[in-house]
Design a protein around this nucleic acid. Structure first.
Length: 553
RNA sequence: GCGCCUGUAGCUCAGUUGGAUAGAGCAACGGACUUCUAAUCCGUAGGCCAGAGGUUCGAAUCCUCUCAGGCGCGCCA
């Protein structure tokens, strides 16, 4: 609808400009918005004020010219008014609004999708936790945000690939192997000093036990290095399988799992190092190899190869992102913990060094999640192995609640996860509130069906819905496609959760003040179609968040 | 010391990227079930948008400074 209004306005402006009645300007920046107050109509534009400020003419004078040129569109607008300093406000006719219902019922689960992204290839990489332990709540937030964003971008017409980067190379993997080996030996009564920086969680013992089930005491006889390597491989596989299961349980699916080790296997790290060297973007100093990131706006150069000859984490990461570029992604989105924010400038530098536009890379930073139970913070620390896993939370409060709660805040704001609230089945819990709206509609439809009322769009009469309550609801769902676009454009998927809450509120209000099924068969049909449309939008938006839309509760 | 993020109602937070009289939810208070699911609704109250300057027709939003909190500033990952 907004698009239609925008198009009509654009057409009117073009004609006026051609006649020289108003100053010219590029129509790209034309902004049509939904005003904050109902009295200001359905849509509003500030174009007259923008044009006026460019030419020192009075805004209202220009507004009047535009108003006049659009006054004839009676089938679309009830009113075109000038208000305030020079806003032009449009009120769309009820008939036009009712037509939106046709669109929704025809498009069904496709309603809200658009061609905004124009098929541009975009990659969203998220979670990417090291396979050294189970996913914890922090990873859960990244998973919820990343998966929702991927779905949102897809709906907005981007060609999206979601990816999990497996850090299966490097020191932390050796420590993992060593940690498991120590527990393994302990289980045979061979006391072994546990590494200072080892993984202390109980899951390490579980893995050691599984290893014993499979291989018995075989490893004790092997050379230590070999035994540790075996432990490492075994542990990584088990942990990664666990991560996959947890994500599946969380309704998060990846299109692609990318293993860091393949970068070495395929010599991509090596080639990247050569690439930088050939362009004089790296140099030797103090026995190390440095990348000239300062050429691309970083505050200091960064080490690629350490004095001891081993690579930093950064080196394969550059190769990884080079690979992303080579795979043809025009927009690369990485979702990281906020504690990695210092890493953004050097990654942008790397992107630019590889000849791409630095703005095609986006790092979405996810802030900390803290858990609260009975008003008390739940203590967590990864180091000591005392952390609450994602799986525990899902099992305690349910997948749907969990996904919603992680999306209740902007991703760069800290999140307090209230476990007691999450389990409450009342109006305080937004998830049940929203799902209840969906279930209620399903119930109405069941009752209607028993009475022989079957929603049929072809029998929808355009003047059957006239009350403010009916139209408010239509306007709300009509705005859904714009919401999806704005979430995709700004990479802010959390807005979906707020929209859902507002839509559910609008529906519950409607329900309490109006009857869908009544003696008036014309109105009954129209309202049935209206609630089917609301149900569809609720389901579509919940779907973007990976949350179920129950038929009954 | 330098850099990034945050500061909006008693609490938790939105605010569509500069628009009109700043909005929700919870908590508080008062109401609504003979009615399609009360896991619901309606009403009341609640504000120096941390503070001070600046930019302009117009600022919670942009710029500068100050204050408060969080996080970074590894040849860790």
């Amino acid at each position: 609808m907004k698009e239609q209004v925008s198009a009509l306005l654009r057409k009117a402006l073009q004609e006026l400009m051609a006649k020289g009645a108003i100053p010219g300007c590029d129509l790209e920046s034309l902004s049509v918005s939904v005003p904050s107050r109902k009295e200001f109509g359905d849509f509003s534009t500030n174009i007259a004020m923008v044009l006026a400020s460019q030419t020192k003419r009075r805004p209202r004078e220009i507004a009047e010219i535009i108003q006049e040129s659009m006054a004839g569109l009676h089938d679309v607008f009830d009113r075109v008014e000038i208000a305030g300093p020079g806003f032009i406000n449009f009120s769309v006719t009820p008939k036009m609004w009712v037509r939106v219902l046709h669109t929704i019922l025809e498009e069904k689960e496709r309603f809200g999708t658009s061609g905004f992204g124009k098929g541009k290839k975009v990659q969203v990489e998220f979670v990417s936790a090291n396979p050294t332990g189970p996913l914890h709540v922090g990873h859960g937030r990244g998973a919820a945000v990343g998966d929702t964003l991927a779905r949102v971008l897809r709906a907005a017409g981007f060609e999206v690939e979601s990816e999990y980067y497996i850090n299966d190379v490097g020191n932390q993997m050796n420590i993992l192997g060593l940690s498991v080996f120590c527990r393994y030996r302990e289980l045979f009564g061979q006391e072994t000093p546990f590494p200072e920086n080892g993984y202390k969680g109980e899951y390490i013992r579980d893995i050691a036990r599984k290893l014993i089930d499979l291989r018995g005491e075989e490893l004790l006889a092997l050379p230590k290095d070999e035994a540790i390597a075996l432990c490492r491989k075994f542990a990584a596989e088990i942990i990664l399988d666990g991560i996959r299961e947890d994500l599946e349980l969380f309704n998060v699916h990846f299109d692609h799992w990318f293993s860091e080790s393949t970068l070495y296997r395929d010599h991509k790290v090596e080639h990247t190092m050569d690439f930088l060297k050939d362009r004089d973007l790296s140099y030797e100093a103090d026995g190390a190899l440095w990348f000239r990131t300062t050429r691309f706006g970083d505050e200091k150069d960064r080490v690629l190869r350490k004095q001891d000859g081993s690579l930093t984490y950064f080196a394969p990461d550059i190769a990884y992102h080079k690979d992303k570029l080579e795979r043809g992604f025009r927009k690369i989105i990485d979702i990281w913990g906020a504690d990695h924010h210092g890493y953004v400038p050097r990654m942008k530098a790397a992107i630019e060094a590889m000849g791409a536009d630095r703005d095609c890379f986006h790092a979405l930073l996810i802030q900390l999640v803290s858990l609260v139970r009975e008003g008390q913070p739940v203590s967590m620390s990864t180091r000591s192995g005392e952390f609450v896993t994602l799986r525990e939370i899902i099992e305690e409060v349910g997948k749907d609640v969990c996904r919603y709660f992680f999306m209740m805040r902007r991703s760069d704001a800290q999140l307090v996860f209230d476990l007691d609230l999450a389990k409450k089945r009342s109006d305080e819990n937004p998830v049940y509130y929203i799902q209840y709206a969906h279930a209620r509609i399903c119930s109405i439809l069941r009752n209607a069906s028993e009475l022989g009322h079957v929603p049929d769009v072809s029998r929808l009469e355009e003047d059957a819905l006239t009350t403010g309550d009916d139209l408010d609801l239509i306007k709300m769902i009509a705005g859904y496609p714009d919401l999806v676009v704005s979430c995709a454009a700004d990479l802010e998927p959390h807005r979906i959760s707020f929209y859902l809450l507002e839509l559910a509120t609008a529906f519950h209000r409607f329900y309490n003040r109006n009857r869908v099924i009544s003696d008036d068969s014309r109105l009954t049909m129209a309202r049935l179609i209206l609630v089917v449309a609301v149900k569809q939008v609720l389901a579509n938006a919940l779907g973007l968040m990976g949350i179920s839309a129950p038929e009954s509760m």
